[in-house]
Write a protein that binds this DNA or RNA. Structure first.
Length: 466
RNA sequence: GGUGCCAUCGCCAAGUGGUAAGGCCGCAGCCUGCAAAGCUGCUAUCCCCAGUUCAAAUCUGGGUGGCACCUCCA
């Protein structure tokens, strides 16, 4: 398997530290608002990664955190006159529901900041003991970036002299502009947690380092985790700071491989709430099957920037439809347990830094070839069983085609409408039988008006929601 | 200003030295009462210029045009 390392900036052969075992940590959401398409993209990318790693025989331990301590959460709680926990529980539940709709498997470990405070304060203490952190007169604890010779080695940023010399306003009492908070003292009576450094709240960067240490790191390994992932925006300062905290408080570096997924834009513009509906995942899920969104968001390579628009989304839906039509065509067939060339090629393509485009090309070629053979004559038992195995592998690796194919084509249709359509189809077939094509075509137009397409086959007339 | 990424058919998008995958759209055809679905065929020399090489979309240099990060952000 090959993985592009966004710190070394090249594709590297993947080798976990411990034979056959992979530890993966991904920065998850701050639960103060509904998830947007960018959250979906990130979750989807690392879901795919874990599937491919597992298919390659690795035993993967995947952790993705939930940030439930944050100023934005507190602000929202105040605005809505609710407790912090009400807010975080609500958005955590919503996040899970939406990820489920996208077919994103749950991580093995999902640590929360509120449940990691001991790990965090322990890490701060270590950093203070080793002179990598200092306490200010106001009770804040800052990481001393000047004490870490490797600071900025991750993002390869150059700190200019001006910045280095800068003495920040006396109120913050930071030694260096780049220094970041490990613990913020809070005296205004709002939410605080106890710590040896006084009441306050942990700095945001800290939780990931602490959680990794607590849940994934092996004491004697050179790297705390094999792979660390997240959105491209997190490389600096978030991951830079995480890396600094870990290397200065323990005897290992944070991660051997770094993976950063590209950003999602909407119609060429950076996402913002002013753009309205499609910003939130929950709204997109009202309009489209979660699996269509999954297919679409994964169809572009994870490192590229992604430009969300309905035209491309429709093209993706049509591609997914083809998988489901083949599933309908072979519905009920047994599945071969023999290895197929297709499965090997699929895994090979995905193992090349998640080359989804090459993978989708393989899938389309497989579908076309199968349909072509099926069109020519009846039998082909072996082909059918092999194809069922191929489709099952596509489900396992990519999560495409996991639904009942008949139900898939009914997305968003209520019972009453379905009954109306079925009734019209019976009427149309009667007209067809009587060779009254004028009536039957008129009835078809009525059916099409429901936003469906219909197809006459030797086995009867079927319809699909477009 | 600093750091970095990108530029392939109308649209989406692979391909990182050996002569341009795949999908959507479009056109022609098979099938069909007609359609739909499915299948077949057709559609690019890779932003520009110069260079390296037997050979470049792929390497180098210079342009031009996008974009991201540097502040909370997936």
């Amino acid at each position: 398997m090959q993985i592009y390392d966004s710190v070394q900036k090249n594709k590297r052969d993947f080798k976990p530290q411990e034979e056959g075992k992979v530890s993966l940590y991904v920065c998850g959401p701050t639960v103060y608002d509904d998830a947007h398409l960018g959250h979906a993209k990130s979750a989807l990318v690392f879901d795919l990664l874990t599937r491919v790693l597992r298919a390659n025989g690795y035993e993967v331990t995947y952790a993705r955190n939930i940030t439930d301590i944050d100023d934005k959460i507190i602000k929202k709680a105040h605005e809505q006159n609710k407790s912090i926990k009400e807010i975080t529980d609500f958005y955590t539940l919503a996040f899970h529901k939406e990820m489920d709709a996208l077919g994103v498997s749950r991580p093995d470990i999902e640590p929360k900041a509120t449940e990691s405070l001991t790990a965090m304060t322990q890490m701060i203490q270590k950093l203070i003991d080793t002179k990598h952190a200092y306490l200010t007169d106001e009770g804040d604890v800052y990481f001393d970036t000047a004490s870490d010779v490797d600071y900025l080695s991750l993002s390869k940023r150059v700190q200019n002299e001006e910045e280095r010399q800068e003495r920040v306003e006396s109120s913050t009492l930071k030694k260096n502009a780049a220094d970041f908070a490990l613990w913020k003292s809070v005296k205004d009576g709002s939410l605080t947690y106890d710590s040896p450094f006084g009441a306050g709240r942990p700095g945001w960067h800290l939780e990931c380092s602490a959680m990794i240490e607590k849940h994934l790191a092996k004491p004697n390994a050179a790297f705390a985790v094999d792979i660390h992932g997240g959105g491209a925006d997190l490389l600096f300062p978030h991951h830079e700071n995480e890396a600094a905290q870990t290397r200065c408080s323990s005897n290992h570096a944070l991660a051997n491989y770094w993976m950063h997924n590209g950003f999602v834009n909407i119609d060429g513009e950076k996402m913002s709430k002013s753009l309205g509906n499609s910003f939130f995942l929950k709204d997109a899920l009202k309009e489209y099957d979660g699996e269509v969104l999954r297919f679409y968001l994964l169809s572009t390579h994870y490192r590229s920037n992604f430009n969300f628009n309905t035209e491309d989304l429709t093209a993706s839906k049509k591609r997914l439809d083809k998988i489901y039509r083949l599933k309908k065509r072979l519905f009920g067939m047994a599945e071969s347990h023999e290895p197929t060339a297709f499965k090997a090629e699929l895994l090979k393509a995905l193992s090349d830094d998640l080359n989804v485009s090459a993978t989708l090309a393989l899938i389309d070629e497989m579908i076309t070839k199968t349909n072509e053979t099926l069109d020519t004559s009846g039998k082909h038992k072996e082909l059918k069983q092999g194809t069922m195995a191929n489709l099952a592998y596509i489900e396992e690796l990519l999560g495409f085609g996991v639904k009942n194919p008949f139900e898939y084509f009914l997305f968003g249709m209520d019972e009453a409408t379905k009954e109306k359509i079925d009734a019209l189809i019976i009427k149309r077939n009667e007209a067809k039988k009587a060779k009254d094509f004028e009536s039957s075509d008129k009835l078809r137009d009525e059916i099409l008006a429901f936003g469906v397409s219909i197809m006459d086959t030797p086995n009867g007339t079927f319809w699909e929601k477009i």
